[in-house]
Write a protein that binds this DNA or RNA. Structure first.
Length: 824
RNA sequence: GGGCGAGUGGUGGAAUGGUAUACACGAUGGACUUAAAAUCCAUUGGCCUUUGGCUGUAAGGGUUCGACUCCCUUCUCGCCCACCA
């Protein structure tokens, strides 16, 4: 029926690319570099539609850049450490390494089936010691700089995974991986001092103008820098200073009580020997047992009690009660607040519940007569200062500055900046990860493993049960070692690193993946980096992208990198849903890419997924889309096939009437598709433009067939169609390109076409005629018509005249080359 | 509660101040066929008195010669953050 044997074509070209190393890359100073990277996958064994979408977008960008003459780096690897391998080990008694290697093998095969233009010679996997050796190297460097440190504190603990979690890994109070409720646990753990770079991480977001705004906002919120004042309240009995942090120092005259976090170290001191002591201690005990999630749930009533103590408000020497309550967190600010019920909703609710005082200090311009006692919610907006001593009458924004300055001069407060960002808890009680390269010696304390002894290899044969802490602690041959400093018997650290550590610098390793002397070659990394276009899921907006920026800044501070930001441009692609839901095994709504490739081929799948929606929008998978993609490819294939059968054009090419419009369409399409490939990335509209071109080629081809001869304009259109489509559907286009007479090499070595501006100049223009803004007529005019001639022509148009009906013309608006609007 | 985004035919979507619904899917009718599939052709927002006209981009208002597009109000949905003082 048809000859488009996609199976044979796809196999043929995949083999060709592999044999000719078409996509291998090397540093070349004579060409402009372009590094395009998609977030590397966890090797689960099978690729899913999310991968297909992510990697098709990246591949299209990469292939376009290759064809456009750039020196392109487009690598692929595997983020191979992590829990699924360990879970499989527990369930099936398999070795995580074997399981992972097997999965990688399957996955590579599937990726190759999609025809992605990767430089496979650069492939890496984080579970190999040649890679994780450099994880350990980075860790040691951080340790030496004081940026990797161990401390005991209350940590996030997933009871199901039996391991610690970073703050970034706690989503809605649950584990990011298994969704189990996270609890707090007192543990001694390793942290990375990401806060060392908090200012740079926030400030340099300004350099990322090509990142989606929402990712920037999410990172800003996560870092959470707030400017405020630390105000010194004095406890009346002990005269101890209790600093509180506020961003609303303008409301200080409205403070009617102070709240101190239950965990606050000063709390136990000030309540000593007070009648309330016992009750308060009981409350502290109760809160400490509560999980953070329960405590922070929005709908839970805030609990608290009076401590029996009082504090002096330093601005007016007022004596106000000190309370303790679970709505104040020890981790943020100073762990104590001044409560202003009239201008903070949380304080308002708490004050109402416990009958605490209220005083209005900022008046609402919309309700100037409002009284504090009549309020039904806090007024948190701007307004004019009242009941605030010398500051009355000022607007509160001005007062903020004046009060801060005045407090500093009186030494009752100090301007401060607080961040929400916390250091990164990086140790995990897992087997399948990078061993933390640390040795504990009784004499020398914590000693990092010297560089020449790296890597600390992950031992084989550890018993993985999923319970009872770090599996490595049960491998005695691993634990027992000698102190590198004093050679006394010592013990190894048995925790492993969070896998986000591995992925925080892999983009650097791709620049020199086989280097055994260093984590990367300095020259190569500074040639290829930063990544010009990074593509991945929005779910990494904070986690992976923030950590990667942190690592880049760290290595930059050591002088290894010349750049401060790893990813110049970021595209966050939308999810692929099925029936409005995320595809998952448990829901049984998985669409298997393999089955689709089997039926329609990889090119159709690539086209379908790009045509379905713009890349950043999520879309619902529909099998019908495949039919449409398939039909289009078939039409293109058949068109090129029939074109090849035509005789070459005679020396004197007769000009069939299709030629001029076809040439216009060809060059308009080149323009449109090039713009989208360059950075617009609306592949869906690029594809529709290609379909339009194809729709114009079809009748032109019929005419040429009838005439029995070729046409240069038709040839140009067909060539353009094949090249412009090649980044999207590479196999078929390689094949067609060859049939069109280009016998040598790959289509990526052909230069991407440039549009001819002359071809886009039209002799005649369609002008829209509007009466009072409504479209009433269309006229065709010469493109060089003057404005006056155009007006005259429009007014003489009979159809226009019937609409004017002799009414006086008030105004004529002319939009050059587009329309004329007559106002009557 | 805060932030960001979105709302357009039966469906995915196009148009970012100038012909609303490009391109496709689906549907209907026709050609081909013994038949079906495939393919090709035609129609396809709604309404009407149908060679024409009215109306129409969540709802209402505004700015403009002209608004899906800009501004204000309201509604709905999605995502992210959420006792951060």
């Amino acid at each position: 029926m048809n000859d488009y044997d996609f199976k044979a074509i796809e196999k043929k070209w995949q083999k060709f690319w592999q044999e000719h190393k078409t996509f291998s890359s090397e540093v070349r100073k004579d060409k402009e570099k372009y590094y395009v990277l998609e977030m590397f996958p966890y090797p689960s064994g099978r690729i899913h539609m999310g991968h297909v979408r992510n990697y098709t977008i990246g591949d299209t960008v990469a292939r376009y850049r290759m064809t456009a003459g750039y020196n392109v780096l487009h690598p692929m690897g595997f983020d191979a450490f992590g829990q699924p391998a360990e879970n499989a080990a527990i369930k099936n008694k398999t070795d995580p390494r074997e399981w992972t290697e097997k999965c990688i093998e399957w996955m590579e095969k599937e990726l190759k089936q999609m025809g992605f233009a990767y430089d496979w010679q650069r492939e890496l996997s984080t579970h190999r010691d040649e890679y994780y050796k450099w994880n350990q190297w980075i860790f040691v460097k951080m340790f030496e700089k004081g940026l990797a440190y161990k401390k005991g504190s209350s940590v996030n603990w997933c009871p199901r995974c039996e391991t610690t979690l970073a703050n970034e890994e706690v989503i809605n109070g649950g584990c990011w991986r298994c969704e189990a409720q996270v609890v707090q646990k007192e543990l001694e753990q390793w942290y990375l001092k990401i806060t060392e770079f908090q200012d740079a991480l926030l400030e340099d977001l300004k350099l990322l103008s090509d990142w989606p705004v929402r990712v920037i906002t999410m990172q800003e919120n996560w870092i959470g820098k707030s400017y405020g004042v630390e105000i010194y309240f004095k406890e009346t009995q002990t005269s101890k200073t209790i600093p509180v942090f506020t961003t609303r120092q303008d409301t200080i005259f409205g403070a009617t009580y102070v709240v101190i976090a239950p965990e606050h170290p000063q709390l136990k001191e000030i309540i000593k020997n007070k009648p309330e002591e016992k009750k308060v201690l009981k409350f502290i005990e109760k809160v400490s047992r509560e999980s953070k999630i329960v405590r922070m749930a929005a709908d839970v009533k805030k609990e608290g009690m009076f401590t029996g103590c009082y504090a002096i408000n330093p601005v007016n020497n007022e004596k106000i009660p000190i309370w303790t309550a679970d709505y104040v967190l020890m981790e943020y600010g100073t762990g104590a607040i001044m409560a202003v019920p009239t201008h903070d909703q949380r304080d308002f609710l708490f004050a109402k519940e416990h009958g605490l005082g209220v005083r209005l200090v900022i008046s609402d311009p919309k309700r100037p007569d409002l009284k504090a006692l009549e309020m039904d919610c806090a007024y948190e907006e701007d307004g004019v200062m009242v009941n605030s001593g010398n500051f009355n009458g000022l607007d509160n924004e001005t007062a903020k500055l004046k009060i801060a300055e005045w407090m500093e001069s009186q030494k009752i407060g100090q301007r401060e900046v607080y961040f929400r960002l916390r250091d990164w808890l990086v140790s995990r009680q897992r087997y399948w990860g990078t061993p933390i390269p640390i040795i504990y010696c009784e004499k020398c304390d914590i000693v990092p493993v010297p560089e020449k002894e790296l890597p600390v290899k992950l031992p084989k044969g550890a018993e993985i049960t999923g319970t009872g802490g770090s599996p490595l602690s049960r491998v005695s041959g691993f634990v027992k070692t000698k102190c590198p400093k004093c050679s006394a018997p010592a013990k190894r650290e048995t925790d492993t690193m969070a896998t986000f550590f591995d992925s925080s610098w892999y983009f650097l390793r791709f620049c020199s993946p086989r280097n055994s002397q260093a984590l990367f070659d300095k020259e190569e990394v500074n040639y290829w980096m930063p990544v010009d276009q990074y593509i991945g899921g929005i779910e990494h907006a904070v986690l992976h992208l923030l950590y990667s920026r942190f690592f880049t800044k760290f290595l930059h501070s050591l002088g290894y990198l010349k750049f401060r930001e790893p990813f110049k441009k970021l595209l966050t692609q939308g999810m692929v849903l099925k029936d409005g839901e995320v595809m998952s095994k448990s829901k049984g709504n998985i669409v298997d890419p393999d089955a689709i490739i089997e039926k329609y081929g990889a090119d159709s799948l690539r086209l379908c997924i790009l045509f379905a929606a713009p890349p950043e929008v999520e879309f619902d998978w529909n099998d019908r889309g495949m039919e449409g993609a398939w039909r289009f490819l078939l039409r293109v294939y058949n068109a090129v096939d029939s074109f090849c059968l035509l005789k070459a054009a005679p020396a004197k090419n007769p000009e069939p009437d299709f030629e001029k419009p076809l040439r216009f369409k060809t060059h308009a399409t080149i323009k449109k598709v090039t713009e989208e490939m360059e950075g617009g990335f609306k592949f869906n509209t690029a594809i529709s433009a290609l379909m339009e071109l194809s729709n114009e080629i079809t009748p032109a081809l019929k005419q040429a067939q009838a005439a029995g001869a070729n046409s240069q304009i038709l040839k140009e259109a067909i060539d353009a169609l094949v090249i412009l489509l090649s980044p999207l559907c590479p196999h078929m286009c390689e094949e067609l390109w060859q049939r069109l007479g280009h016998k040598e090499g790959s289509i990526i070595n052909t230069l991407w076409p440039k549009y001819d501006a002359n071809a886009l100049v039209q002799d005649e223009l369609n002008i829209i005629v509007q009466i009072n803004g409504k479209m009433r007529s269309k006229i065709v005019v010469n493109s060089d018509i003057s404005e006056e001639e155009l007006k005259a022509k429009v007014l003489s148009d009979p159809k226009t005249a019937t609409w004017i009906k002799g009414q006086p013309v008030k105004k004529i608006v002319v939009v050059p080359k587009k329309l004329v609007n007559i106002v009557v």
